[in-house]
Amino acid sequence: MSFRITCPVCGARSSTEFRYGGEVPENWREVWRRDNPEGPCRERWYHEFGCRRWLTLVRDTRTDEILSYE
């Protein structure tokens, strides 16, 4: 089941409106490195059905709870 993501431009929407961009790498030269943590994960989401902009958030991968937005 989907969960809600609050887009800073458009407001709270279903995660199905977003394209998943994966974990934010520490360094763009090492974007192939994925830690795949169980727990808080800093990641990128693209609001494809709305403003078409990226946002960065921290999601708990166990519960899909969004812990913080940047």
Partner: peptide
């Protein structure tokens, strides 16, 4: 095409 915009925007921000 549908992925190109997301790709460019992501990297513009990353860079």
């Amino acid at each position: 095409a549908s992925g190109a915009e997301a790709w460019l925007r992501d990297w513009a921000e990353a860079f």
